[in-house]
Nucleic acid binder design. Structure first.
Lengths: 336, 336
DNA sequence: GCAAATGACTTAATCGTTTTCGCATTACTA
DNA sequence: TAGTAATGCGAAAACGATTAAGTCATTTGC
């Protein structure tokens, strides 16, 4: 690779001049600039990001922390969607995306924060991690620009899917279809789960729907087996629900299978609804009713916010950005 | 961040000694080594990857080229699975993964090769791109260690899903269920597609099954609409197939919906099979019969091969690594 | 007993940039 | 016409590491 030194030699100027010409400093004549640029182009010159970063402390590289407790990793539809959109967003602005190494069981591994310093990330996006992990907290307390997805830290930027509104709208839609016995299998405890549960209960109250304690069940996210078990318990109740809301679409699949095994039809005998709006849900029979989260918006806004935080920290407003989802009216909720 | 200079000051030795001590050179006394290491640890020292890379020409960073013509990006199940596994594999060996910026319509963007030089990637993994793109070819012709997925370049390492065997086994399974009128909606032209078509035809021939020209249809990968159209055409044939194989599971979903719209039942009236083995297929009703590609193995082997190529180029064998898939026997293929 | 080898460091160059400061020229002002 | 200001460029330090070569005292070999 041609370096500035090579260019300087060819142009008969100093390396400093080359640097300034390429970076458009004002103390280089237009003539010299064009000449140097011309030669640089001919020689196929591109800056060495390492050297530049070493000097400027700017890598134009963004770290993504994206562990995956459940082993889903990148195959997690919701987060894959967010990440994909995020990536497009920052790449369009000249940044690259690097994963923060998440393999915790390596000898001599660094903490997340150390890793960030090691690579010199300009900023970090955090999604789908255990937000109570001390290492995550250490990272969040550092001075590195950070944006998180779906979890609010003090004084940090966050993009959240509007779970409160989402659950309200989903519940209301189901209510409007005539359902009054609505169960909710919620995911394991997390900020997201809490929002949804609160919203579920509050909406029920507002609409005058009573929710028996037994209608609330817990099952981990994306766990078809667990959701199936919980579904069984709900079906076995003396007064079973007419509609079950699941933590996510995959869980809903799990529930649907159990329901069918019992010889019940969906939605004639019982209605179900998922959450997320994964692609497969739109193509199966019956089409899944779900709350479709806007992964494109979430990822894009996260990218924009983070870059804003990096490039103009003083004027960037730190306030949660809430992204609205949309009820996807499939065929799994029956009107009664 | 503490630098070597800081450590050298504290320890009262030169920076060179610190470097050598930490890198375990033999010309530093055991005593000094332990002391320096101790202090380094206390000060929370970690090397600056940029500075080190600048000097050593090793970044311990791997580029991933992963464009996505169809806009699926990371939400493409098969490739997301491969990438996830690849990531784990290389991370376990101390490498990080960075995306090669794929947004082609940016002003002043670099070519893939330039980008690799710019970031100094030690190696590159290429998957899911237009392999005939001149930029990709330029990259492949460079001296950077490269491993590709599912597409063989001359003298380059590749990990391929065994499409020939996969299609043979899928076809054979369907044949064994009694089917003799088997149609195949294949994806758009590519190495993968070609392998599958050849294998499909060859297996048919070997088993004495005649495949009318009309039983072969093309529809882009993961295009439910297109697959639906092709399905209609097949159903409208005077002598329609008893089983349809699709380019992938999503396409199969698309076909299934068209079949149902016609009032036909799956698999009682007509059988279908997908390809890939996405998670959703296992949870829907009826469970999808498909060829499940081993994304975990593919990603892992790709990681190992690439690192081998980087760390011991002389002894690494460049020969396609073929990863076998497995027929997932769901319920969409009926025995007749 | 003296040269050579060894051990344990240090010096200094280097990787490819950026950037501050300084030094000539040239142009402008009074 | 002398003094000041602006213009255009170069020298050199710095970023944080690695490493070849050099230094100096102590051991070893014969």
């Amino acid at each position: 690779m041609a370096s500035m030194k090579d260019i300087s030699r060819v142009c008969g100027v100093s390396v400093a001049t080359v640097s300034k010409a390429l970076n458009n400093h004002k103390d280089i004549s237009q003539e010299t600039k064009s000449h140097i640029r011309q030669v640089a182009k001919e020689m196929g010159y591109y800056p060495n990001s390492l050297a530049r970063a070493l000097k400027t402390n700017r890598t134009y590289n963004i770290g993504v922390l994206f562990t995956d407790e459940a082993g889903n990793g990148l195959t997690h539809d919701y987060f894959a969607g967010v990440l994909d959109s995020f990536k497009r967003s920052v790449e369009a602005r000249g940044y690259d995306v690097t994963f923060l190494n998440a393999s915790k069981n390596r000898k001599n591994r660094m903490t997340y924060l150390e890793h960030c310093r090691y690579r010199g990330f300009d900023g970090v996006m955090i999604a789908n991690v255990d937000f109570y992990d001390p290492e995550v907290e250490e990272l969040v307390k550092s001075n590195i620009p950070i944006v998180t997805i779906d979890h609010l830290f003090h004084d940090r930027a966050v993009i959240v899917s509007d779970n409160v509104r989402g659950m309200r709208e989903l519940f209301t839609y189901i209510y409007e279809q005539g359902h009054r016995r609505i169960a909710y299998i919620h995911g394991a405890s997390s900020t997201v789960t809490k929002s949804r549960i609160s919203s579920f209960l509050k909406t029920a109250e507002e609409l005058g729907v009573t929710v028996p304690e037994a209608y609330l069940r817990e099952s981990p996210y994306r766990d078809t087996k667990g959701a199936g078990e919980a579904t069984k318990e709900l079906l076995d109740l003396p007064n079973p629900p007419t509609c079950i809301i699941y933590p996510d679409d995959f869980s809903c699949f799990g529930g649907m299978n159990v329901i069918r095994e019992r010889g019940l039809r969906i939605p004639e005998d019982i209605s179900v609804a998922g959450y997320d709006g994964i692609r497969a849900g739109r193509h199966i029979e019956p089409q899944l009713t779900t709350l479709r989260q806007d992964t494109v918006q979430i990822g894009m806004q996260a990218g924009e916010k983070l870059i804003s935080l990096i490039e103009k920290p003083r004027t960037t407003i730190i306030e949660p950005v809430v992204i609205r989802g949309e009820v996807y009216k499939g065929k799994t909720v029956r009107s009664i």
